[in-house]
Design a protein around this nucleic acid. Sequence first.
DNA 1: ATTGGTTCCTGCTGGC
DNA 2: TGCCAGCAGGAACCAA
Length: 282
Amino acid sequence: MPELPEVETTRKGLIPALVGETFSKVDVRSSGLRFPFPRNLSSKIQNRRVISINRRAKYLLICLEGDLVLLIHLGMSGRMRVFIKGDKIPPIDKHDHLIFRTLCGTEVRFNDARRFGALDLVSAKKLNTHPLICDLGPEPLSESFNGTLLAERIIEKKTNIKAALLDQKTIAGIGNIYACEALYYANLSPRRAAYTIQGKRADRLASSIQGVLKAAIKAGGSSLRDFRQSDGGLGYFQHQFAVYGREGELCPRCKAANHNQGCVNRTVQNGRSTFYCSCWQR
DNA sequence: ATTGGTTCCTGCTGGC
DNA sequence: TGCCAGCAGGAACCAA
């Protein structure tokens, strides 16, 4: 389930394979995902060189010559798998929707079993006004993100903090896993009203968000059912989850304190599983 | 305007 | 062992 760290891991895998290379063609193997693929995608990007690969929230931005940007969202199960010339190429999977090819023989497959992914081709000038991009909140790993900014973003939110963190308009890039983990490290209850998190609490939450995202990127993201790095390898951050998916277990701090009873609870908020430790989160 | 619930899709899991 | 209902989740959409 790609959140910011998984998208960042994918970006890092794509850079050496694609930046500086020129697309030769795209095999379009289905009509689209969340919405139809752009018409004549292959001819539109043919013979264009990849200038850079960036990220905004959970979106990959593959910037091409001629002010074009491939905007890609991995949805729930999307993967970008790279094969360079000489690699053993596996048979095409039924969920390989797009196969990008470059002049030097590199192949990138956009595979997405659950089809919640998205791809659009947009003018670089219009990127910031694109409907998928224009309402996104601040980047949590940007220089300007801190407790003060976070507090400003949530001071009028009457919903719980967990739902506020999942709302991409509040902060961009956080999904269910990292929302749970960040709230744990900030000692904040996921049920707490968002607007009550101001001052020191907001500082704690902002730095917990940054800390957990950075640690996850360092570990190559989290692989649960779906996520793979672009070389097919697994991410490792799932082994470091403090609370996510650990219902009934001891959280790291309760373990250190030799508590003898499981402390991690699971609840459902806004239709999503939330994991939290009732001993530390208030 | 904000918020919470539903829906999309498919693979995997757990219970029988 | 095999089957299938239910669950998982990001974000658009809708309704209150």
